[in-house]
Simulated assay, not measured.
Amino acid sequence: MQVRVVGVPMDLGADRRGVDMGPSAIRYAGLDEQLEATGHECTDAGDLTVPRPETTVANPTGGRHAKYLDETAAVCRELRSVVAQTVADGVFPLVLGGDHSIAIGTVGGAARQGSTGVVWFDAHGDFNTPATTPSGNVHGMSLAAILGMGEFADREWAHASAVDPANVALVGVRSLDEGERAALRDSDVSVFTMSDVDERGLPAVADEALAVAGGATGIHVSLDMDFLDPDEAPGVGTPVRGGVTYREAHAAMEAVADRLDDIRSMEVVEVNPVLDTHNRTAELAVELVASALGKQIL
């Protein structure tokens, strides 16, 4: 298939600088070569323009409860249009973050083409709202925004009405705030914690998560690199011990590859080269994307 790479050097949604360099780090780690090895045709559309924190003021309407909300909305609107057009062109969008707030735009664009299920590989739930967030960082609200939770219900740039919570699965979760824990329990989202992974094995969990998302006409895969244990992926902004291993992560992406005909879009986010060692996390991100897109040992 044809793959179009789009970079979104966003760090407005996080509380640590450096994640804006993630798209460059991933490209530098050999993304083109790995995608060519999958047999897909790849073009790079470059990066969207993202405001810098030094040149803007945290959104006064969101204040400390939703930092840089207007700026995030503007970037996500543009990304939504780019992704929607890419899918309409019959091309697969591969979006490189940046922090996880960009998923609001990626999923919104994919969902313009019909009902969309989501598999969210992440240590965190990203299910806070401005009313529940302890930090005000929008990257911790992105999934809640997509599903129109709380204050996001009436925000057209965020709420993707074509995404049914019953077709959303979180995988690898091991760190939840009290507010998002309660919200997830009350939702129809399927949550697979690291305890589930330990008990059942990641291939079985990934297969079930993909089946949940497969209830829609297309699937979006969101890969936050803190899904992995920090020993494997040190270059992330919010590391949490007890994550998946190198081999487990590849097994999860191989499960994605088995459903590739159903996958509509993908993103990889939260690579922070400032916190990394010898670009290890970006190199691993490239390997995992290649596995998801069908690269095989034999």
Rank of each mutant, 00 (worst) to 15 (best):
residue 192 F to K: 11
residue 16 R to D: 07
residue 169 A to Y: 10
residue 31 L to K: 03
residue 219 I to K: 08
residue 19 V to S: 14
residue 285 A to R: 05
residue 110 A to L: 10
residue 67 K to I: 05
residue 75 V to F: 01
residue 122 D to G: 05
residue 95 V to G: 01
residue 172 G to H: 09
residue 77 R to C: 09
residue 80 R to F: 02
residue 257 A to K: 02
residue 117 G to A: 07
residue 125 G to V: 10
residue 34 Q to P: 00
residue 83 V to F: 04
residue 1 M to P: 08
residue 16 R to A: 13
residue 129 T to M: 07
residue 193 T to D: 06
residue 16 R to W: 12
residue 7 G to D: 06
residue 275 L to P: 00
residue 260 L to T: 00
residue 2 Q to K: 15
residue 82 V to P: 00
residue 38 T to G: 00
residue 253 M to S: 04
residue 44 D to G: 07
residue 68 Y to G: 01
residue 98 G to P: 03
residue 298 L to A: 14
residue 203 P to V: 12
residue 162 A to G: 00
residue 79 L to C: 04
residue 19 V to I: 15
residue 12 L to F: 06
residue 12 L to N: 04
residue 257 A to F: 05
residue 293 L to Y: 02
residue 133 T to C: 08
residue 182 A to F: 10
residue 15 D to R: 14
residue 144 A to C: 06
residue 29 A to L: 00
residue 261 D to I: 09
residue 287 E to W: 07
residue 171 V to K: 10
residue 46 G to K: 11
residue 39 G to Q: 11
residue 165 P to D: 09
residue 195 S to M: 10
residue 163 V to R: 13
residue 298 L to K: 14
residue 58 A to L: 06
residue 195 S to F: 05
residue 102 I to D: 03
residue 30 G to Q: 08
residue 191 V to N: 07
residue 172 G to P: 03
residue 138 V to Q: 09
residue 33 E to C: 00
residue 207 D to I: 13
residue 219 I to R: 12
residue 170 L to C: 14
residue 107 V to T: 04
residue 290 A to P: 00
residue 116 T to Y: 04
residue 191 V to Y: 08
residue 212 V to G: 07
residue 221 V to F: 08
residue 120 W to S: 04
residue 294 G to V: 02
residue 113 Q to H: 14
residue 106 T to E: 10
residue 225 M to F: 02
